[in-house]
Design a protein around this nucleic acid. Structure first.
Length: 430
DNA sequence: CGCATTTGACCTGCGC
DNA sequence: GCGCAGGTCAAATGCG
């Protein structure tokens, strides 16, 4: 805070360089404290110098030499004296050697002080005007940066943080300006930065990827460490829903829900939410990259349908679809359908997760996440098109293939191919 | 005893 | 405004 105040003081003083003060045009009659035209520092004034050829007010050079090493500090003090007013100046002059003069001297002194006061008032006006200009320029730049970030929020979380941090470092609001309405706008801008960042973070955390798989275990092992923090009975499902949070790193926002399917108790639905903020073991990379890619896709929105891959009609089981019934955008990967034999010619596929019971990988399809309550809505129809666009994203599909490859345990290092140019998935080449 | 799990209470958003 | 459902918290409990 103190450093910021000093920096602002320097900024204001620097901004005064080259500025022409009103009194500069009248320098023959008076010498002014802190005048840019007179860079020699004046600590005290000898109002009663015997040197009649000089100006009325003479700087005391001896004092200047004594305090040369306190240049900046004393300049600040002098500016403070200017603001305080004439009383302090009068006291200063008394200490400069006034031994009590005649009435003529007092009258003369009064005239000098009044003139001094008037000029100081003008100087203060100039300073105030310059501070206002600096402040207005800052607000303009602030809004410019703000608008720039609003129009580029898809991949700029880091940008927002950097700009906000820089804004905090550069922000200085003088105490006597805090009641200014324009200063309040700075606070609003700051709050707006927070809301933008929080909004992005919240949306990142709310995007979900659900995996349906057959397992007799209470929870599939996906390579991460989880801690259970709650359990609830969900409506329409006699099986409780368990809530877990990632404990591999402090503050990791990733959470998951585990619940058995009401129609088929052998099916376990695991819903992931959020992105890990820490390195992951190899066994957890596939699933994490899938959820991360899905989250990114949902945030960036559907792409143009003009470049749809051919995989959707040929591999309908690899078409993730947004959930319409879930409260948040959700992509469900269904690994339970036995019709997968038609597509996957290497049965049985053993689930690599550390469940005690091997699971037969079924039809690798994606479907609406309505397994728990069977509800449907109009949103399903509208989201179907969105989901079709969703699958056209090569990054998401690459991550999806990686996850599926790890799930089915048949990823033999490069055989499972998905390329942007081919826009197709070849899980099992001939 | 420390850590993980359980479980009831509490909060929040949404629909009526 | 009220009730419901989903989600989270935190004290109580269990276990190694």
């Amino acid at each position: 805070m103190e450093a910021a105040a000093i920096r602002c003081e320097n900024m204001v003083l620097n901004s005064l360089d080259g500025h022409k003060f009103p009194h500069e045009t009248n320098s023959n009659t008076n010498t002014y404290i802190g005048s840019p035209a007179d860079h020699s520092l004046i600590n005290e004034m000898d109002f009663f110098s015997t040197n009649t050829s000089s100006n009325i007010i003479q700087p005391v050079k001896k004092e200047q030499q004594h305090h040369h090493h306190h240049h900046d500090q004393q300049q600040l003090q002098l500016n403070l004296n200017v603001i305080v007013g004439s009383n302090n100046l009068y006291a200063t002059k008394r200490t400069a050697g006034c031994n009590g003069g005649t009435k003529t001297q007092s009258a003369h002194k009064l005239v000098v002080l009044q003139a001094e006061l008037e000029n100081m008032k003008r100087e203060n006006e100039c300073l105030r005007s310059m501070v206002t200009q600096v402040k207005e320029k800052y607000i303009y730049l602030q809004r410019y940066i703000e608008d720039y970030n609003i129009h580029d929020t898809t991949n700029n979380i880091k940008t927002i943080n950097v700009v906000k941090e820089d804004k905090k470092q550069s922000l200085f609001v003088p105490l006597d300006l805090k009641n200014d309405s324009r200063v309040d706008s700075l606070d609003n801008a700051d709050a707006k930065f927070d809301s933008i960042k929080d909004g992005v973070d919240a949306s990142m955390r709310r995007v979900r990827v659900a995996v349906r798989a057959r397992s007799e275990a209470s929870m599939i092992s996906d390579g991460c460490q989880w801690r259970k923090y709650g359990q609830k009975m969900a409506k329409g499902n006699p099986c409780p829903r368990a809530y877990y949070r990632c404990t591999m790193a402090i503050g990791c926002p990733v959470r998951k829900q585990v619940q058995r399917c009401a129609q088929d108790r052998s099916v376990l639905t695991t819903t992931y939410e959020g992105t890990h903020n820490h390195p992951l073991p190899q066994t957890a990379m596939a699933m994490a990259s899938t959820t991360s890619a899905a989250a990114s896709m949902l945030l960036s929105g559907p792409k143009s349908s003009s470049d749809h891959p051919i995989l959707s009609p040929h591999y309908p089981h690899l078409t993730p679809i947004l959930s319409a019934t879930a409260p948040f955008p959700t992509v469900t990967l269904d690994l339970t359908n036995p019709k997968s034999d038609h597509y996957l010619r290497q049965p049985p596929f053993h689930f690599p997760f550390s469940t005690n019971t091997p699971m037969v990988l079924g039809h690798v399809t994606s479907q609406l996440n309505n397994a728990t309550d069977g509800r449907s809505s109009d949103r399903e129809v509208t989201n179907a098109a969105t989901a079709a666009d969703f699958t056209s994203d090569p990054h998401f599909m690459a991550a999806l293939v990686a996850a599926i490859g790890s799930v089915i345990g048949n990823n033999n290092g490069g055989d499972n191919v998905y390329t942007k140019n081919d826009t197709s998935i070849n899980l099992y080449p001939p």
